[in-house]
């Protein structure tokens, strides 16, 4: 038990040191812009199909499942607004982030881990190329930018999924459906939900990079890096989400 706690503390402090190094290096030239763009493209490309499918299904399922309850209270007219709100505030960010933790964080962990184990990171170091800048900074920036974009994409697809769900039983035009949603959406609802997705992105990238970059030598550590990246990133996502919800709540009651 004590070793378990010790592990958590030393892990947290090491990750903090790693994050500090990121902030120190991110503003220093030279900037690896080409590699950053390439990573954005690769990450987006990798996660897009999964995010699209799950976003669509969540919107559809949410609508179908909420309908009976809403109908009971005679509030069917609120259904689009409610589905959109839950998609944007909670479902799309969390689902997208978890998918990216599984797909991107583990991918980065495995990639950097195998580069570490096969001495490719050392090879960069000795040819006077800063591997932290080239590999880590670009990837963290890419996830920080791409996760929010993927979330917005999931929002849109999810709302469309909701539209399909509506149309199973009733006949609503897309225009009217969207109109209903816009009526019930507040700008205040969207902003905190968007801000937290940047944090999701940052942690997904950072944890993957940390696990990969610090993998010990030996091939089994590559698998370990990928695996523990998923676990740690998923946990981080829920913790951030909880903090974000608490803060929003506090702010709303001010």
């Amino acid at each position: 038990m004590t070793t378990y706690l010790k592990d958590i503390f030393s892990n947290t402090s090491n990750v903090s040191i790693f994050a500090m190094r990121f902030w120190k290096e991110v503003f220093k030239p030279p900037f690896e812009i080409k590699e950053f763009i390439k990573q954005c493209y690769l990450l987006g490309y990798k996660a897009l199909p999964l995010v699209a499918i799950t976003g669509f299904i969540m919107g559809l399922v949410l609508t179908i499942q909420s309908r009976p309850t809403m109908a009971k209270f005679g509030a069917e007219a609120w259904l689009p607004g409610m589905v959109a709100l839950s998609m944007i505030k909670e479902v799309a960010p969390i689902i997208t982030a978890l998918i990216c933790a599984g797909k991107i964080s583990s991918g980065i962990g495995a990639e950097l881990g195998s580069m570490k184990v096969t001495e490719q990171i050392d090879a960069m170091e000795v040819s006077a190329i800063n591997p932290f800048k080239y590999l880590v900074v670009t990837r963290i920036l890419a996830t920080t930018l791409m996760i929010p974009i993927l979330v917005v994409f999931a929002d849109c697809i999810g709302i469309f999924g909701g539209f399909m769900g509506m149309n199973i039983h009733t006949d609503v035009t897309l225009f009217r459906y969207l109109h209903k949603i816009l009526e019930s959406l507040n700008f205040i609802d969207i902003i905190p939900a968007t801000i937290k997705t940047f944090f999701f992105g940052f942690f997904i990238g950072m944890i993957g990079c940390y696990k990969g970059f610090t993998a010990s030598n030996g091939t089994e550590s590559v698998g370990r890096a990928a695996n523990s990246a998923v676990v740690a990133a998923s946990l981080a996502i829920f913790i951030i989400d909880m903090i974000a919800v608490q803060l929003t709540d506090l702010y709303a009651n001010l």
């Binding site: 195998s114 001495e119 490719q120 050392d122 090879a123 000795v126 006077a128």
Partner: peptide
Amino acid sequence: LNSIRLRIGFLFQNAALYD
């Protein structure tokens, strides 16, 4: 250190090519 490293070549045991 980097300016010294540029004057030194290092061949790693498994070549460490960028995959």
